[in-house]
Computed example of a mutant assay.
Amino acid sequence: MDKEKVIEIQNLTKRYPNGRGIEDINLEIFKGDIFGFLGPNGAGKTTAMKIMTGLIRPNRGDVKIFGTSVMEEYEKAMASVGCIIEMAESYPYLTAYENLRQFARYSSQVSRQRIEEVLELTGMLKFKDEKPKKFSLGMKQRLGLAAAILTHPKVVILDEPLNGLDVEGMIDIRNLIKHLAENEQTTFFISSHLIHDVELTCDRVGVIYNGRMLNVESTENILRNYATLENYFVSEVERNGRIPNCAG
């Protein structure tokens, strides 16, 4: 049975004045996927994700979420999307709970019970009355993830979600992502430069290098053919990566 197409990226290109950017990115992400967008720092991951979430406009190309163009019908396309791009933002002088109450104002569906639930899911319930100005980077990431999943989004877009987390935090967040994908059919699009974490978290992987997509493959096939994601990544870069620099 064909899986439902959730995100469709077509010929996505963004050039900056310094010549960096992304070039002709094409991707399809399906319902329940945990898709890993893997590449070194500066490869173009954040540029692509900013376009996907409407923060910047491409020079050409389009992103469709459930068939709706982010460029043409932004509010409709983003209605069922939660995201963290670059850094998880919060109001430093409100408590963790008050921050989520503030974010909940944008949706009529969020109850106090749901706020408590996402704080529990992300391991932040015991800190709900503390203010983010005192939080570590990892705790801010956890709170950002709580905000991203607050409205039961069908799609969650996360830029480097494991940044700043200790080993226990990485395991917690990885388990949460897998739980939501499996039990709620939430679709995840996750960027990372941490090869080991992508290998353990994602079921499909796309390699981006110097602003271009090199390949997309299932983690299962990668591990069967290359033993590790690192071997696959090195192989793909050596086979395809000798291309003009247009990173961003």
Rank of each mutant, 00 (worst) to 15 (best):
A227Q: 14
T201W: 10
Q141V: 05
Q109C: 07
R57D: 05
S192G: 04
L165G: 10
A79S: 15
N183T: 15
P17M: 06
F35G: 02
K3V: 01
E199K: 09
R142H: 09
Y209I: 08
G67M: 13
I65Y: 02
I115N: 04
E4W: 00
V70T: 09
L162A: 04
E8P: 06
R112L: 14
I177D: 07
A77E: 04
T13R: 04
T187V: 00
G42Q: 13
I222V: 06
F66Q: 08
F127H: 10
P58Q: 08
Q109K: 14
R212L: 00
A227S: 15
G39H: 10
A147P: 03
F188G: 01
V216N: 07
Y16D: 03
L176M: 09
Q185T: 14
L200M: 10
L158S: 04
V118S: 08
T68I: 15
M52L: 13
T187W: 00
L200W: 02
L165I: 04
A48M: 14
L137G: 02
E86F: 05
F233Y: 15
M78G: 01
Y97I: 08
I243K: 00
V156Q: 12
Q10L: 06
A148D: 04
L229S: 13
A247S: 15
G211Y: 00
G67F: 14
D197N: 12
L55S: 00
I177R: 06
T219A: 06
Y106T: 08
F66E: 13
L200E: 12
M52C: 15
Q102F: 13
K5M: 15
R105I: 07
